[in-house]
Structures are given as C-alpha cells and as structure tokens.
Amino acid sequence: MELIDGLLARRTTNGPFRPDPVSREHQHLLMRVAQAAPSHFNSQPWRFVLIENPATIARVADLSGQSMTELIDAGVFFERYRRYFRFSEAEMDERRDGIHIDRLPGPLKPFTRQVFSDAGLKLMRQLGVPKKLGEDNRKLVAGSPLLLAALLDRSEYRPGELSGFYSVFGLGAAIENIWNAVGELGMGIQFVSTPMEIPRHWEELGRLLQVPDDLELMAVYRLGYLPDEPHRPAIDWSSRHRKRLPQFVYRESCAQPEEE
C-alpha cells in the first residue's frame, strides 16, 4: 500500500528547488529506477544525460525563458493550449482535466476570461507579461541544481514504425519511474518543455549537449530537493483534478462506461 499511496501522491513541481546539489547517490538511484522500466524485447532504448554544470544549466535556462517569451508574445502558446485551461471550480469539476486558472499576475486578474483573446494578448504585451513569464521560467530552470536530458537510440527509435512506438512507450515508463521515485527522496521534478516549442532553440540545446547523430533528444527535466515551504509561481500550471471512472474507463467495450 505504501507504493500505491506514493503513486497517488505524485506531484509536478512548478516552483523553485533548494539550491543544494543532488547527491550522486540519489542521481544514480534515479537512473537505476529508470533502468527497471519495461521495454520491448528488453531493448532499453533510453539514454540520459545528468547535467550539473552551472554554465550549461544557465544556457538551458536562457533558452527556456526566451522560448516562453516568444511563445506568449506571438500568441502561439495560448492558441495551442487554450483548450486545457479552465476558469471556474464548476468547469473544473465537470471536466476533471486541464488546468484551473485561479492564479494570474496581478494586472491580469480583472481579465481572467479574456486573457486568451486577441484583446487579452494585446494587453499582456502592453503590460510586459511575456517577458515576465519568460523571466520566471528562466529563473526556475536556472535555480535547478540538476537537469536531466532523456534521449532515444535511433537504431530503436524509428518514427513511423512499430519500433518508434515501442521506444517512446519504454522511455515513458522509465521517466514515470523517475517521477514516482523523486518524492521518496524529498525531491521534485518538472518537464522543461518550452524550448521544444521553438525548433531553433531545441536544435541549439542538442548542440549544447553534444547529442550525436545516433541519438534523438526527446525531453529535458529539472530536478532538485523540495523547499520546506513550496512557493506557487505567477501562473500555476498544475492541477490535482482527475477524471471520474466513467469518463475514461469502459467495461467490455467502448459502448459501456464503467460505473464508479
């Protein structure tokens, strides 16, 4: 039951970490946990880069902040992801998915529901919100004592073939093992997603990590030890709501939703 309780208590850390370095023991433990994940024919297609060099972390942070600023300023971010934002407890309770926007930078609070409209985007630009969110993003990454890059072996990862699916499935299982293990170590983890949204930034990140041609950079995460009193960011992208059983589980066929 301790394992089950741990799985149900899983969290994503959207705030800052403590500055303490992550011990080598804990880093290797997380790698062994990842290694224990299932993979097709035990292919173990995953590769990882553990990043502690402050200069490298600072550059990844710069790319993350720049990416966030560009995405918000161009309206791409909200256009791409507005379907996941909920603006009331009632809407959140009905849908049980997405993100409940109950926290915004002060100048935007009166315009919560209009924040994703053209008028809202214009207002955000005038108030400097894209730069503010970009700087917040940069600081979060820059203040992380450990980054983790996840890669796949291209000899296994062949998009368009079943091997491509099997490889992504295996990497997902490995990352989930890490995600579920960090809490036991007093740590947190968060996906550093924004550089992936802008190809030139993602390509620079690959060059920064000296990714060879036989590997594919798939994702980057930030990790660290959790502070005693977590701090919520200006926009908190997390949500603990989960769909009810009838909303995602069926009995015998897709024609019969499961009952609670």
Rank of each mutant, 00 (worst) to 15 (best):
P45H: 04
M196L: 14
L123Q: 08
G188D: 01
L226G: 01
G186S: 03
G172M: 11
D62P: 01
L3P: 05
H231W: 04
A61M: 01
A174G: 09
A150N: 00
R242G: 11
A90C: 05
I4G: 03
P130K: 10
A234Y: 05
G143I: 02
A174Y: 05
R200E: 13
G172N: 08
V249W: 11
F77L: 15
V220T: 10
S117P: 04
D214Y: 07
M187E: 02
A174R: 02
I101L: 15
R207G: 15
I57E: 03
K122F: 05
E260K: 10
V49A: 12
L185I: 04
I189C: 12
A37W: 09
R59P: 00
H100P: 07
E259G: 06
L152P: 01
R200F: 06
H40Y: 13
E229R: 00
A174V: 10
F77A: 13
G120D: 09
T69N: 08
A34V: 11
N177Y: 01
P130R: 11
T194E: 15
D93K: 12
A142D: 00
P257E: 11
Y250V: 08
A150T: 00
K243D: 07
K132V: 12
Y166S: 08
A58E: 02
R222L: 05
P257D: 12
G206D: 12
E252L: 14
